Amino acid sequence: MPDSWWRRVRAYLTPPPISEASWRDAVAACPLARRLDRARQDELRQLAAVFLARKRFHALAGAELTPSLQLLIAMQACLPLLRHGPHALRGWREILVYPGEFKVRRSHHDDHSGVVTESDDVLIGEAWERGPLVLSLADVQLDLEQPWDGFNVVVHEIAHKLDMLDGASDGVPPLPPQIPRRQWIVAFQRAFDHLSNDVARGRDTLIDPYAAESADEFFAVVSELHWSQPGVLRRADAAVAALLTAYYGPSPAPG
C-alpha cells in the first residue's frame, strides 16, 4: 500500500502533537481556552490534535486560512467535546471556510399546491448532517475578539454536530448516563415554548430570538450562551443552564 495511506492511518490513530510554541500562541489568542484550568487545557490540546488530524479544511472564495487559524477553529470546536472525547467527532470530515457571510440556495416544496420556490439565505455558519461544517472566517475572528458577547459560531455549529450524532437534529443530543433524557426534554421544551411565546408577542428576551426557530436552533443558541454568557443563561432559564453545565462541564466564561 502507498506510504501516504499509512501516514494518514497513523495520523488518525496517533495524531502528531501540537507544538509548544503553536499551542502557547493559540491559547493566548483564545480567551475561552485561556480561562480553562491546566487539566482542561491539556485535554483540549489533545482533542484539538485529534481534530486537526481527522478533519480537512478547505478555504473558499479567497479565504486566507493559516495553520494558526485552523488551530483556533479546532480549539473552539473541541471545547464542547471536553466531556465527550474524540468519539464525538465521528460522522463528518470537511470544514469549509468562507471569508465572510455566504449564501445558500434553499428550495421549498408546498405539499398542497405542488409549487417549488427557491430563495437565498445569507449565513455565517452551517452544519450538514453527515456533511461539512461551514464557517465564516470573519465571524470566527470576531468571536475571538469579543468572546463574552453571547455568540460563538463555531460552538453553535458544533452543537448541531453533537445533536446529529443520533440522527436528525432535534435539540436532544446523545446524553451521558447522569442526565436523564426525560428531564432534558421536559426542561428544554418548556424553555423553548416560553421563548417562542415571548418572541411571538414581541417581548424582549435574554436568549437570542433566533433560538425560537426550532428545537435544534434553541439547543445551539443556548450552547453559545453557556460558553460565552453563562450568567445570562442562568437568568433566562436556570434548569437549562444546569443541564448544559452537566452536559458540557463548567463554563470558563465570566459569570
Rank of each mutant, 00 (worst) to 15 (best):
A215K: 09
A241E: 10
A236I: 07
I207F: 10
A220R: 04
V221D: 02
H226Q: 12
L244G: 12
E224C: 04
V240T: 03
A239Q: 15
V221A: 12
E224Q: 11
A242F: 05
R234S: 07
A242T: 11
G202W: 15
E224K: 06
S228H: 08
A238I: 12
L244H: 11
E224H: 09
S228D: 02
L206H: 07
D208P: 07
A238T: 14
V232P: 00
Q229P: 12
A212R: 05
W227C: 02
R201H: 10
A246F: 10
E217F: 00
L233Q: 02
A241I: 09
A220F: 03
F218S: 06
A242P: 07
A241Y: 14
D216T: 12
A246V: 10
F219T: 06
P230V: 08
A246H: 11
E213R: 15
E213S: 07
P209H: 05
P209L: 08
A211W: 01
D237E: 13
D204E: 15
A236M: 10
P230N: 11
E217M: 05
A211R: 03
I207A: 04
E224A: 04
Y210F: 13
F219Q: 09
A236H: 10
D204M: 04
D237P: 09
E217A: 09
D204L: 08
P230Y: 01
S223Q: 06
A246L: 14
V221W: 00
A220V: 06
G202L: 09
R235Y: 08
E217L: 07
L243W: 07
A242N: 13
E213G: 06
V232G: 03
A215Q: 13
F219L: 11
S223E: 11
Y210W: 15
A220H: 05
A239F: 08
A238S: 14
A246P: 13
S214I: 00
S214R: 13
